[in-house]
Design a protein around this nucleic acid. Structure first.
Lengths: 206, 206
DNA sequence: AATCGTTTCAAACGAACGTATGAGCGAACC
DNA sequence: GGTTCGCTCATACGTTCGTTTGAAACGATT
């Protein structure tokens, strides 16, 4: 293991892990710098403020993740010019979340939880970041889904997409919490397939 | 309007509103006591600590809400002894959330957001409260759903229920945020009907 | 060897936090 | 009418927070 990379990256990694575990407000700058073994002032030097660090932590994962979503959507739209299947659209939206979850924690995926947490972050800066990041994606998805489901109204598609968003986020946030003892261990891969099938059926039922 | 009821209730109402708007960690005891126009020491006097106040705020809504859910489940199981329909089970779980959302904010429903926020609260005390409150409900729901969907495994039911949970929570949390300009205004009633249909189809598709 | 921009360091700052204290108050009770 | 009890009050305590500062260390360039 040892100390990987430079100060800036070490801060990002540790911050991501601690934020995802405890929430951004319950993690102090001193917690981060101590665990990352860097000086207390390093965060303000490299990022400006704690708020900016939080934004950087989110941004590092969300930007490439949403780029991957858009690329996946491009791909399925290219291969089926008549409009892709509903399941393929949903998959282009769901699958990238497990590929961009990060692996900073030994064994665990830190951003998985952080990602689930970010939507309930009340910080105005994060909210602005989310809006900026998700709006273009949401537009594209709505357009593709409108084509795939011509019988549904824009509103119906919007709300169904929100339900899917919610199921996905909640799954990320709690997939290793609140689990009953009898539950069989399952792979992420299997579960996102279930989620895609679940959501697709939900869309079609509306 | 004027000042309703006693100090304790005023604190609970204001705390619920501020917590739901800003998250428990970004609301100070001074914010609450100032807005409620009570003395700074009142919270520690009446509740013991801030953490205990948070628990009281959650508990005030969650306990009767989950009681209502169990009662609704009882009711549908009583009226159809062969096992209730899937939609009725889901409704007994979903509908009480909009009836127990509270109306403390003028016009808005404060707990609606707080309720959506509570699952991502990292506080161990809240997590324990949630576990205690949701476990019996989850057991009952799993049992009822197993009966209604004999083809599904316990695991499948568990995960589909999690998806439904997530959709419901996310809807509560963001039903008045991140909305596009073109979106038509819809009633809660209509939307929970959509959610029930959406989830029911999702369950059946698995 | 001297200079310069960059990064790290220990130390301190003021503000805000949750909590504790002890006096003060009014109504209820003996 | 004095005492008790539940509650409110202003004020203070100690801690922790995010941030700032100015000097020291470093590496690259001249």
């Amino acid at each position: 293991m040892s100390e990987p990379r430079d100060t800036r990256s070490r801060i990002l990694d540790v911050a991501e892990e601690l934020f995802s575990e405890n929430g951004v407000d319950r993690v102090s700058i001193r917690d981060i710098t101590k665990k990352a073994r860097v000086n207390l002032a390093a965060i303000n030097y490299h990022f400006g403020s704690k708020e900016d660090l939080i934004a950087a932590v989110f941004e590092r994962r969300i930007v490439p993740m949403n780029e991957a979503r858009l690329a996946a959507l491009d791909a399925v739209e290219r291969t089926s010019p008549m409009g892709p299947r509903l399941e393929d659209i949903l998959e282009s939206f769901i699958r990238p979340t497990i590929q961009h979850s990060g692996t900073t924690t030994a064994g665990g995926k830190a951003f998985s939880k952080l990602f689930g947490r970010c939507l309930s972050e009340p910080s105005p800066e994060i909210e602005a970041l989310l809006k900026r990041q998700f709006e273009p994606l949401s537009e594209r998805l709505n357009a593709a889904l409108t084509k795939a489901l011509p019988k549904l109204s824009r509103s119906d598609i919007f709300w169904c997409l929100k339900f899917t968003f919610g199921a996905l986020h909640h799954w990320h946030l709690t997939k290793d919490r609140f689990l009953p003892a009898w539950l069989a261990k399952t792979e992420d891969e299997e579960q996102i397939k279930k989620l895609i099938a679940f959501s697709a059926a939900g869309f079609r039922a509306t």
